[in-house]
């Protein structure tokens, strides 16, 4: 069990630097260069990463701006692409096991959440004393957010030119990382949900590309939840 303010912050930074900060740096370089192509300023791109903090929505914003859509349509598409934050916040915040927390504090926690923090923290929390989990989360999330903003600016200014095949390998780091992290998730219902989510996404993406993740979540998650209940004979867990 990890405890103590310094030790927890050290672990959070090391965990961030081991891969996630690098993943964010690289993927946000892609966003930065796209944002520049769409006519956004460097400070706009950086603030988009800082305040939207959800790549699918950021990409929707840039792509629709390039094709000359109206502002309302762009904002709506970005919002839909980031709708996963609703269930992610609900499933994540109680895991930090904070007894009393203020509404503004919870809003800040929610704003800092990203798929990386969500996956890594849920993985690491069992090894961290409950009262230090929030500090771990804040340190980890702000570390990777800093890397993401730096990556946005680097990509915007066209910092690095690597051979094409290496870039492909780097783009692949993000899905590989999540596939490995998710493979270790315990819990029967969660595992069923992930398998069914993978089974649902191709058809959902083909039929309703703009809301494919929402459909996948509700269909795969509900079936996985039901299957988990059925398997365990209806008792808790």
């Amino acid at each position: 069990m990890v405890s103590g303010n310094v030790e927890v912050m050290r672990k959070a930074m090391l965990d961030a630097l081991s891969l996630p900060a690098f993943i964010l740096l690289f993927t946000m370089m892609g966003f930065g260069s796209l944002a520049r192509g769409a006519g956004f300023g460097a400070e706009m791109a950086a603030l988009a990463t800082l305040f939207i903090w959800g790549l699918p929505g950021q990409l929707a914003m840039v792509e629709l701006t390039v094709t000359g859509q109206g502002i309302v349509a762009i904002v709506f598409a970005c919002s839909l692409a980031n709708a996963r934050f609703l269930p992610m916040v609900v499933s994540f915040v109680p895991a930090m096991s904070r007894g009393r927390s203020s509404l503004p504090g919870m809003m800040l926690d929610a704003q800092l959440l990203s798929i990386n923090s969500w996956a890594v923290c849920l993985r690491e929390f069992p090894q961290i004393e409950p009262e230090f989990r929030h500090r771990y989360y804040l340190t980890f999330a702000s570390s990777i957010l800093a890397a993401a903003v730096a990556g946005t600016l680097l990509g915007y200014h066209g910092a690095v030119l690597l051979p094409g095949v290496l870039v492909l390998g780097l783009i692949f780091v993000s899905p590989l990382f999540f596939a490995l992290v998710l493979s270790a998730v315990p819990g029967r219902a969660e595992r069923f949900s992930m398998i069914l989510g993978c089974a649902t996404i191709p058809l959902a993406h083909y039929l309703f590309p703009s809301v494919d993740l929402l459909i996948t979540g509700v269909v795969g998650g509900s079936l996985g939840f039901a299957l988990g209940k059925f398997w365990s004979g209806g008792d808790a867990n």
């Binding site: 994540f92 798929i115 999540f178 969660e190 992930m194 989510g197 979540g217 998650g221």
Partner: peptide
Amino acid sequence: TCVSYAMVAGL
């Protein structure tokens, strides 16, 4: 929680 896992795995 199951919905979150299905979404993230699907993504």
